[in-house]
C-alpha cells in the first residue's frame, strides 16, 4: 500500500528538480545573452585601424565617438615590430557609411579633467566610406597643459614688448616733462589764487570751519542718536529683565531668609545636642565685676 505512494512522490520530486534546473540554465543563458549584447556580439561591426607613435592616453574599451555619438570602441592596442602602435577600432556598421576614407581619428579629452575618447573627424563626403581593415590617419588633440604652453608662448613676446617700452628713456623723459609741466601749472594757479584770495582768507577760514562743522555736526548727531538708541535699548532690556524677575525677587529673598533661618536652627540644634553641647556652652547674660574701690577725695 505504501510503495506506490513513495514512487509517485519520487517521480514528482524528479519532475520538480528538472524544472528547476531548466529554469537555472535559462537564467544563465539570459545573463550571457545580455553580456554579449552589451559587448556588441550581436551587432555587426567593421574593424578599422590607425597607427600612433606611442600608446599614451589610449586604452582598450575606450569609446569612439562621431559628432558626439558613440559609434564604436577600441578593441586592441598592439605594438608593431617597427615600434609603432596599432590600434584596432570596431565601428558599428550602422554609422560606417558616414565615415569616409579620409576621416581622421583624434585622441581628445571630453573636458579639462574628463575621460579621453577617440573622436572620428569626418572627411570629405565624396570619398568612399571606410570598410573592413581600413586605416585612418591619427592625431592627438591638445590637452590643457599644451593649451597653457601655447598661451604662454604667445604672451611672452607681448610682455617683452611692454617691458621694452616702459623701460626706454623716451617714455621716462616724456613722463618727467609732463610732471614738470603739471607742477609749474599748479604753482601758477597757487600764486594767482594767493593774490586774489588774501583778502578773502578770513572768509575762507570761516567757510572752512563752517564746512568742518557742517560735516562734523551730522556725524555727532548720528553718533548721539546711536548712543541714545543704545541706551534706550539697554534700558529697555534692564526694564524687561527687572519686570521678568520682579515676581521672583521677593520669593528669592524669602527663600534666602528661610534658608539662613533653617541653617541657624540646625546649627543651634547641633550645638544643643548631647554630643556637642559640652563643646558649645550656651551663652548667658553676664554681670560686670563689682569694683569695690572708691578713690579717696583728693586733698
Amino acid at each position: 500500500m505504501k510503495l506506490p505512494n513513495y514512487n509517485q512522490r519520487l517521480l514528482s520530486m524528479e519532475t520538480r528538480t528538472k524544472r528547476f534546473m531548466l529554469g537555472a540554465v535559462a537564467v544563465m543563458l539570459l545573463v550571457l545573452a545580455m553580456i554579449a549584447a552589451k559587448q556588441d556580439y550581436f551587432s555587426r561591426s567593421t574593424a578599422i585601424y590607425f597607427f600612433t607613435p606611442n600608446a599614451q592616453g589610449l586604452s582598450k574599451g575606450m569609446a569612439v565617438k562621431f559628432i558626439g555619438f558613440k559609434v564604436g570602441s577600441v578593441k586592441e592596442i598592439n605594438m608593431e615590430p617597427n615600434a609603432t602602435v596599432r590600434v584596432k577600432v570596431s565601428l558599428d556598421d550602422e554609422y560606417v557609411h558616414l565615415i569616409g576614407q579620409d576621416a581622421k581619428a583624434r585622441l581628445v579629452k571630453e573636458a579639462l579633467v574628463g575621460e579621453s575618447v577617440v573622436e572620428i573627424i569626418p572627411g570629405s563626403q565624396q570619398v568612399r566610406q571606410v570598410s573592413q581593415n581600413s586605416v585612418l590617419e591619427f592625431e592627438r588633440g591638445q590637452d590643457a597643459s599644451t593649451v597653457v604652453e601655447n598661451l604662454a608662448a604667445q604672451l611672452q613676446p607681448i610682455l617683452s614688448d611692454i617691458h621694452q617700452i616702459t623701460s626706454s628713456g623716451d617714455i621716462q623723459q616724456t613722463l618727467k616733462n609732463l610732471n614738470q609741466a603739471s607742477g609749474t601749472f599748479r604753482q601758477t594757479v597757487n600764486e594767482y589764487t594767493q593774490l586774489g584770495a588774501n583778502g578773502n582768507k578770513a572768509m575762507e577760514h570761516i567757510n572752512s570751519s563752517m564746512e568742518t562743522l557742517d560735516k562734523a555736526i551730522p556725524k555727532l548727531v548720528d553718533k548721539a542718536d546711536a548712543t541714545l538708541d543704545n541706551v534706550q535699548a539697554a534700558t529697555a532690556d534692564i526694564k524687561k529683565i527687572t519686570n521678568d524677575s520682579a515676581g521672583e525677587i521677593p520669593s528669592l529673598v524669602r527663600n534666602a531668609n528661610a534658608l539662613v533661618q533653617d541653617g541657624q536652627e540646625t546649627l543651634g540644634g547641633v550645638k544643643r545636642s548631647w554630643l556637642l553641647n559640652s563643646l558649645f556652652t550656651a551663652p548667658e547674660e553676664q554681670s560686670l565685676p563689682v569694683d569695690g574701690y572708691v578713690a579717696p577725695t583728693q586733698p
Binding site: 545636642s273 554630643l275 553641647n277 550656651a282 551663652p283 548667658e284 553676664q286 560686670l288
Partner: peptide, 24 residues
C-alpha cells in the same frame, strides 16, 4: 541620651544675651 537636647532658649532671650555680651 544622644538625641536629648538642652532646655530651649527663646529667640528673645538669645537676643537679650547678644545685647548683653556686646555691652560687656
Amino acid at each position: 541620651a544622644c538625641g536629648s537636647v538642652d532646655e530651649i532658649r527663646s529667640a528673645r532671650l538669645e537676643q537679650a544675651t547678644e545685647f548683653n555680651q556686646r555691652g560687656q
